[in-house]
């Protein structure tokens, strides 16, 4: 209910602002909505959203899997940490634009280059978060697992993984928002479809209703995924905490 109210307030503010600023710079909601409907009817909206989502899904999965593994290793093995740390700092501070441009130069304007560039941008934050998680593992529980001779695989699943879960959730949450931002830049610079490409086209044509239509539908998709997938996942992970007396 409160969410709806907050959404209504957003629309109202937008409408008032468009009246003040003028239609040329900020079109009113109905104008944007009609463009949105036209794009949806032609199917272009879904093709572009689909392309962007597929890139997000691939890059996100790749970066989370690799980043978690590397982060866990760096948190557990001090040699790995000493070897990896300078690279990590370099990657953390490398601007997204540099990575994307270099990827397109070296690997061509290809899908692989785009997804790799997005994944590389997200990778270091996952590594840093998971490294903290691995460092915070409770040695007392490790000892318990050793004393009871719990096999490694089982111990990882039941003892280690639940301790890492909040860190994985945090990495997923911050990583996803990073990927949402970067995927559009990568598409803008070198892909023939996707929300980022359409926004680039709209920018060149100064077609503001089109630009807003794509921006808003993209924001809508992000909101839906966050509320329907990320938040329930987080709640499930911390279910044992909520019930604590």
């Amino acid at each position: 209910m409160l969410r709806l109210l907050s959404f209504a307030l957003f629309i109202a503010t937008w409408w008032v602002a468009s009246l003040v600023i003028g239609d040329a710079k900020l079109p009113a909601p109905p104008a944007v909505l009609s463009v949105l409907a036209a794009e949806a009817r032609s199917g272009a909206l879904f093709v572009n959203l689909g392309a962007t989502l597929a890139r997000v899904a691939l890059a996100f999965t790749l970066a989370m899997a690799l980043g978690s593994a590397i982060g866990y290793l760096m948190g557990r093995v001090s040699l790995a940490n000493r070897l990896g740390d300078p690279w990590l700092i370099l990657l953390l501070n490398l601007p997204a634009l540099v990575v994307i441009v270099l990827a397109y130069i070296w690997a061509g304007l290809t899908e692989v280059a785009a997804i790799a560039a997005i994944a590389i941008n997200k990778l270091p934050t996952a590594v840093v978060t998971l490294r903290e998680g691995a460092r915070a593992l409770d040695p007392a529980l490790d000892e318990m697992a050793t004393a009871f001779a719990i096999p490694r695989g089982r111990a990882f699943r039941h003892v280690i993984l639940p301790q890492l879960a909040p860190y994985i959730a945090a990495a997923a949450r911050s990583g996803l928002s990073l990927v949402w931002k970067i995927v559009l830049v990568a598409e803008y610079l070198g892909r023939p479809n996707g929300v980022g490409f359409e926004i680039g086209v709209a920018f060149q044509l100064f077609d503001i209703p089109l630009l807003l239509a794509y921006s808003l539908s993209f924001a809508g998709v992000v909101l839906v995924i966050e509320t329907l997938m990320v938040q329930p996942f987080e709640t499930r992970l911390t279910r044992w905490r909520l019930r604590a007396a």
């Binding site: 529980l141 000892e143 044992w240 604590a244």
Partner: peptide, 9 residues
């Protein structure tokens, strides 16, 4: 152990 060392989850 001195502390129970149970898995809270």
């Amino acid at each position: 152990f001195q502390e129970p060392r149970l898995l809270p989850w």
